[in-house]
Amino acid sequence: MRGPLHRPAVMLAGLMTLGAAASGCGIRPTSVPVDAGPAPSRVACTVSQDALTPQFEGVTVQVYLVCGAQLVTAERSVRIPESKGAADRVRFAQALLDALIAPASGEEKDAGYTTALKGPLTVSAARPGDPAGTLRLSREPEALSAVALSQVVCTFAENTPAAPDAQQILLGGPGGDPARGYSCTSEMKSRPDSTATLGEIAPSPRARGSS
């Protein structure tokens, strides 16, 4: 009588057949992990000088993009006459934001460059009571991703610092919260996704005068 008692024998025969087939193909079972070759190479994070040639007349600035999980500089041309770039700070800051939001060029993509900053995002001047040099974003700085905020902070600090020779920027949002100071540090550049980006509350001129 054929029934459940014959199933183990049938299964064993099937396994033996599979083993013989594998042996016939030159494949031997092993418990050692198979080396699939070297890991993919890291991105270059280097763009040729030909790709950095400005495409129109304007001010050439350095903005911070993302490559290899770090912040790296890339050259951009912003459509502001050089004679007005320093005077019209808000307009200049908006041009920097637009350059950060713009997608990477073909050469930059090939080199591994990306941007974490997404639009729309605008910048406005300081409000009454804000410290001098404050820039107000249309979104709260803390609402941006850590990487995007690091890009903004380092790009602004490089090109429009709150004070001469300072790697700090004063940022606020559209609400009534006070502006905060953000510093572009080497740690922020090397680990933009994990650096604490929340700066100190910047004292207003009235608060400084009353202390």
Results as ranks from 00 to 15, higher is better:
residue 69 A to T: 10
residue 99 A to K: 03
residue 70 Q to M: 13
residue 23 S to K: 14
residue 59 V to K: 02
residue 25 C to W: 12
residue 52 L to Y: 02
residue 13 A to L: 15
residue 46 T to A: 13
residue 56 F to W: 04
residue 49 Q to E: 12
residue 43 V to Q: 11
residue 91 R to H: 08
residue 52 L to P: 01
residue 51 A to Q: 08
residue 67 C to F: 08
residue 46 T to M: 06
residue 37 G to Q: 10
residue 21 A to R: 06
residue 102 A to G: 03
residue 35 D to H: 13
residue 28 R to E: 12
residue 45 C to D: 06
residue 71 L to K: 08
residue 105 S to Y: 04
residue 27 I to S: 08
residue 99 A to R: 02
residue 91 R to C: 02
residue 85 G to T: 05
residue 19 G to A: 14
residue 42 R to I: 00
residue 58 G to H: 04
residue 64 Y to I: 00
residue 28 R to D: 11
residue 36 A to V: 15
residue 71 L to P: 10
residue 9 A to I: 13
residue 64 Y to Q: 05
residue 101 I to G: 04
residue 103 P to M: 08
residue 90 V to W: 01
residue 49 Q to Y: 07
residue 27 I to Q: 12
residue 26 G to A: 14
residue 40 P to A: 15
residue 97 L to F: 08
residue 93 A to Q: 00
residue 12 L to K: 14
residue 76 R to C: 02
residue 85 G to K: 02
residue 39 A to L: 14
residue 17 T to A: 15
residue 47 V to E: 01
residue 77 S to N: 05
residue 92 F to A: 02
residue 69 A to W: 07
residue 10 V to N: 06
residue 5 L to R: 13
residue 57 E to H: 05
residue 89 R to D: 08
residue 23 S to E: 14
residue 32 V to P: 00
residue 47 V to R: 00
residue 13 A to E: 11
residue 6 H to T: 05
residue 40 P to E: 15
residue 80 I to R: 00
residue 105 S to V: 05
residue 61 V to W: 02
residue 69 A to V: 07
residue 85 G to H: 09
residue 10 V to L: 12
residue 81 P to F: 03
residue 25 C to M: 14
residue 46 T to K: 11
residue 45 C to P: 00
residue 83 S to H: 10
residue 90 V to A: 05
residue 82 E to D: 10
residue 53 T to G: 00
residue 103 P to F: 11
residue 61 V to D: 02
residue 30 T to L: 08
residue 76 R to S: 09
residue 64 Y to A: 06
residue 15 L to M: 13
residue 21 A to I: 09
residue 23 S to C: 09
residue 77 S to F: 00
residue 70 Q to V: 07
residue 55 Q to M: 01
residue 71 L to A: 07
residue 90 V to T: 08
residue 46 T to I: 10
residue 57 E to G: 10
residue 25 C to P: 01
residue 21 A to L: 15
residue 31 S to N: 04
residue 11 M to E: 13
residue 64 Y to K: 04
residue 68 G to K: 06
residue 51 A to D: 11
residue 19 G to N: 10
residue 32 V to C: 00
residue 69 A to E: 12
residue 36 A to G: 15
residue 101 I to C: 04
residue 80 I to V: 13
residue 47 V to W: 00
residue 16 M to S: 10
residue 8 P to I: 06
residue 24 G to M: 14
residue 28 R to K: 15
residue 19 G to M: 12
residue 46 T to N: 06
residue 20 A to Q: 13
residue 50 D to F: 10
residue 33 P to I: 02
residue 50 D to Q: 14
residue 7 R to T: 03
residue 20 A to G: 11
residue 81 P to W: 03
residue 23 S to F: 10
residue 69 A to H: 14
residue 80 I to Q: 01
residue 100 L to Q: 04
residue 101 I to R: 09
residue 40 P to C: 13
residue 81 P to T: 02
residue 41 S to D: 11
residue 85 G to I: 03
